[in-house]
Amino acid sequence: MSVALAYNNVSVKTDELQELIEGCIRNERSAQAKIYHLFYPRMMSMVKRYFPEQVNAEEILNNGFLRAFQKMSTFSFKGSFEGWLRRIIFHAIADYASSNIKYKQSIVLAEKDEFVHKDHANQLYYNDLLKLIQELPEATRVVFNMFVLDDMPHKHIAKTLGISEGTSKWHVSEARRMLKEKVEQQNLHLKK
């Protein structure tokens, strides 16, 4: 029994996906184009969590797909192709972040877990929260997304971005503080 993938009115079965991957290994442009269109929406969604501006997101995503096409022969057909592709795209995000954002702060603070009041958080709409996260300063947003949304430990974030663990913790603490203020200012907990 083959499993089908469907994205943007394009669907492909597992054996067809394997043929497309093999076509990419042979550097066939049509196979690359189909893989790109199949996985573009989900990969772009992942990139935009970190870099919501379309121009930056497109650059990062295209660099990620280029890397994937160059490394396609390393995919062993064991496990999920989408998971393999996500890891490559994530590395493109991390590389962009470490080379384009000024993380090199020497601030070392203990992380403070200040939470939004329970009533506020319970009623907060997911999309509202994502919009607030996108308004965070770029460096803080990237570290916050890695820590909270991708569940990465501070040690891994620090190594990936070339910062100290203390700086990573500071960015998460700062993001939480800023998000708490924004939630309370906008009274998002009152939406029905």
Rank of each mutant, 00 (worst) to 15 (best):
V47S: 01
N127T: 14
I157Q: 09
V148D: 06
K169A: 08
I163S: 03
K182I: 00
H154R: 14
R176T: 02
S2V: 02
M43N: 02
I133W: 11
Q186F: 08
F144G: 01
V10H: 13
V172L: 03
N145A: 05
Y40T: 11
T160F: 13
H171D: 06
V47I: 00
T14M: 01
E28T: 04
N63R: 14
R86A: 07
A94P: 08
E82Y: 08
N9Q: 11
H120N: 08
V108H: 15
K34N: 09
P52A: 01
R141F: 01
A57S: 07
S99E: 13
Y7K: 11
Q105E: 15
V55Q: 12
V142S: 11
V142A: 10
E58W: 10
I133K: 15
V47K: 03
L61E: 10
I21T: 00
V172P: 03
E165A: 05
K155I: 04
D113V: 07
N56F: 10
A68M: 01
E111G: 09
D128R: 13
I93D: 13
E58K: 14
R141Q: 02
A94L: 12
F39M: 03
W84C: 01
R49W: 10
K104D: 15
F69Q: 06
A57K: 05
D113M: 12
L66D: 10
E165S: 10
Y126L: 09
M1N: 13
P153I: 03
N63A: 06
Y50D: 05
E114I: 12
H154N: 13
